[in-house]
Amino acid sequence: MTTPLPLLLGMSAALFSLGLMAVLSRRHAIFILIGIEIMLTAANLNFIAFWRYSPQPQPTGVMFAIFSIAIAAAEAAVGLGFVIIVYRHYKTTEVSKLNKLKG
């Protein structure tokens, strides 16, 4: 029996929320990056699910997923570079301490 599409989408939604929770509620900068990665993964999953259940077969979904993964990797690299820089300068990785832009 094939799984119905809503179930798949619900699962990716749950994954997305977990990633969001990681972003919003953890104080460590790397945890935020972890959360972002999880969110991106969930979005990719969404695309593949829709590709799977689309009426006409087309490669667009797969293409998108591939490109998304590539860009996510680039972004993760830069982000982690930032974390290292910030750690070097401020000697901390807690985002709540990086509040120089407060009004």
């Binding site: 972003v23 919003l24 509620s25 104080r27 935020i32 985002v95 709540s96 990086l98 509040n99 120089k100 832009l101 407060k102 009004g103």
Partner: peptide
């Protein structure tokens, strides 16, 4: 202006 805590997570 206190909302501008500078805390990124708040913004997020």
């Amino acid at each position: 202006s206190a909302w501008h805590s500078g805390n990124i997570q708040n913004y997020l």
